[in-house]
């Protein structure tokens, strides 16, 4: 049986742990709200962009723009979006599982330190790694995306896919691999996009005019779209990160509270046993003396 002093020491350390996890839970909760708001604020923008692509879609042939051309896939390009810090439950581990399932030759770009470390540890072909702050501004995400688009256009990678934790709700985040480039079939692509964004129909039946020209607008819109799309995925990943961390910290806090209850009970029992022992000893001494 451990002494009361040992138990007291453990109680103290568990209390500290509980305090820390509680603080981290609160921090994650407030960051989560911000991240969710940011992910939601991007929605009207995404919808409008889908509408514009939809307007262009009938004018676009298969091979009109390099970003649309489908090639034989020899080397996949994977953008792995992970967190910078740990303590967020199984979030990163689930992403890594998806990565280990890739059997084809692939080159990787990582956003987030955890992913970079994992890729280095498993000796995969890492082209670059980036870190993005919690705010995940458009310009921060633009750099890795433009880096990948450049490689895609140069032909050193034949696809661009994003592996990220998709935000479903506070409790559920799923690891998803989403193909982004090539945007091989614009029409299919636009229709899924519109279904996702819930876009409306056009009211005007007249032929749409494009200025300076349909090609020029397309050439400007597509790279912009790719940037914006991946930015939205990263925002979703950030929301996932914060909610996963909040849930993990809440579990840790609850466990600490439970452990604390058990330890307190044990401590009181040990204390009571000690007192009983002392009384017995005194009584025995008094009895033998008389």
């Amino acid at each position: 049986m451990p002494s009361t002093r040992d138990i007291r020491r453990r109680i103290k350390s568990v209390k500290n742990t509980r305090q820390i996890t509680k603080a981290m839970e609160l921090v994650a909760a407030s960051k989560m709200k911000k991240a969710q708001a940011a992910a939601l604020a991007g929605r009207p923008y995404a919808q409008l962009m889908a509408d514009m692509l939809a307007a262009l879609a009938p004018r676009v042939g298969e091979n009109q723009h390099p970003l649309l051309v489908r090639r034989d896939v020899k080397v996949r390009g994977i953008l792995l979006v992970t967190t910078d810090k740990g303590l967020c439950g199984p979030l990163n581990a689930n992403l890594f599982k998806l990565v280990t399932e890739i059997r084809m030759p692939a080159k990787y770009v990582a956003i987030g330190r955890k992913g970079a470390q994992f890729l280095a540890r498993t000796k995969r072909d890492v082209l670059a790694d980036f870190t993005v702050s919690d705010r995940a501004g458009f310009n921060e995400v633009k750099t890795p995306v433009e880096f990948m688009v450049k490689l895609f256009l140069e032909g050193s990678i034949d696809t661009v896919e994003v592996i990220y934790p998709r935000y479903k709700n506070t409790l559920v985040q799923e690891a998803v691999a989403r193909p982004v480039l090539p945007l091989s079939n614009v029409k299919d692509f636009v229709s899924t996009l519109r279904a996702e964004a819930g876009a409306g129909k056009f009211t005007d039946e007249r032929d749409m005019l494009f200025e300076p020209s349909a090609d020029a607008v397309l050439a400007a819109l597509l790279p912009f779209y790719v940037n914006r799309y991946i930015h939205q995925l990263v925002l979703s990943a950030k929301a996932s990160e914060q909610s996963a961390r909040m849930v993990a910290m809440k579990t840790a806090k609850d466990n600490a509270t439970k452990l604390l209850g058990d330890l307190t009970l044990e401590y009181n029992k040990a204390r009571q046993a000690g007192i009983t022992q002392e009384i017995l000893e005194i009584a025995a001494a008094a009895f033998s003396a008389s």
């Binding site: 514009m52 007249r206 005019l209 300076p212």
Partner: peptide
């Protein structure tokens, strides 16, 4: 300049 009844247009 855009007034009501403008032709459909997509521009940069």
């Amino acid at each position: 300049g855009v007034l009501p009844g403008h032709i459909p247009l997509l521009t940069q």
